[in-house]
Design a protein around this nucleic acid. Structure first.
Lengths: 153, 153
DNA sequence: GCTCTTATGTTATATTGTAACTCAGACCGC
DNA sequence: GCGGTCTGAGTTACAATATAACATAAGAGC
């Protein structure tokens, strides 16, 4: 696994890094977007758009439709503030927005806990293989389903 | 990309290889299962369970519920007769049942066409990385979204 | 044939994801 | 200020994907 020499944010620090990143792209950091990011970052495992909608609704004391959450999550994924975990139909906050990594998710089939690793040699190998097959602008999706240490017998 | 020295089946040959494989595992090769496998193998791109249900329904001249199709597709995936493409919520027939490969799907975001490659060194690298992170019994999901040769500008 | 098990049918419902249209506020030019 | 335009968000409706619970049918083994 590749070392990480960049900043790994959390809490307020992560939030402001996310805000910076988004505004730097010419997008607005609205109350709702902040609330969605907050909610997402506070989950300790990948959350579905509906989970996020529920969390935001209760944090805001009013009903936020899944619809709005989807729009914002899509924006976040595009802006690299969040990632979609394809094999779980769920989203996670990116712990280091502003840093472009292909990342690898390890998802526990039992408890749903997900850890995220970066391994540039693996992901570039996958990109390379796609390129050799004639694929351009590839977005690697590398996820591994298994059992985490805690859920092993 | 790794060479393939094993049999690559198609048409009737594929069908009988699938039947062999399934029966060898003590499962029955029923009419409906054969019809589902046929339908799946005849799609030229990943098909959703509902697509398959529709194809089977029209082939059989009676309504087959998605439900039944899901059950059979799950069985096929377990038995290695088919694969699930996670990032597309879809399934493809395995062209060489009986041969256990982690495989890599390249999915064109424009036309949906999917090609499947095997690269044991990449996939075992991914397995290895998961193992190092404490994950056991890992099932790698390696998919790449991009644009195929035909859909490139 | 009878029984036990497995496969399928049926219905209902949960979960995930989009579409279409409206409304509100910010910003801009006049 | 006034009217136009743009972006974000609200609202409603619906489409697509997936599972659950229970009833019935079909096969395998005796």
């Amino acid at each position: 696994m590749t070392r990480h020499d960049h900043q790994l944010h959390e809490g307020e620090s992560l939030k402001s890094a996310a805000r910076d990143r988004l505004t730097r792209q010419g997008e607005q950091w609205t109350d709702l977007r902040a609330a969605v990011f907050d909610a997402l970052a506070n989950f300790d495992k990948p959350a579905s758009a509906y989970d996020v909608a529920e969390a935001v609704s209760s944090a805001q004391g009013r009903r936020i439709a899944a619809n709005s959450v989807y729009r914002i999550l899509d924006l976040f994924v595009t802006a690299n503030l969040a990632r979609r975990v394809e094999s779980a139909n769920a989203y996670v906050a990116n712990q280091h927005p502003g840093c472009l990594h292909d990342c690898i998710f390890l998802i526990c089939d039992t408890c749903g806990q997900t850890v995220h690793i970066d391994n540039d040699s693996l992901s570039s190998g996958v990109r390379e293989a796609a390129k050799n097959a004639g694929f351009s602008a590839p977005r690697p999706v590398i996820e591994v389903r298994g059992k985490c240490e805690d859920c092993r017998d």
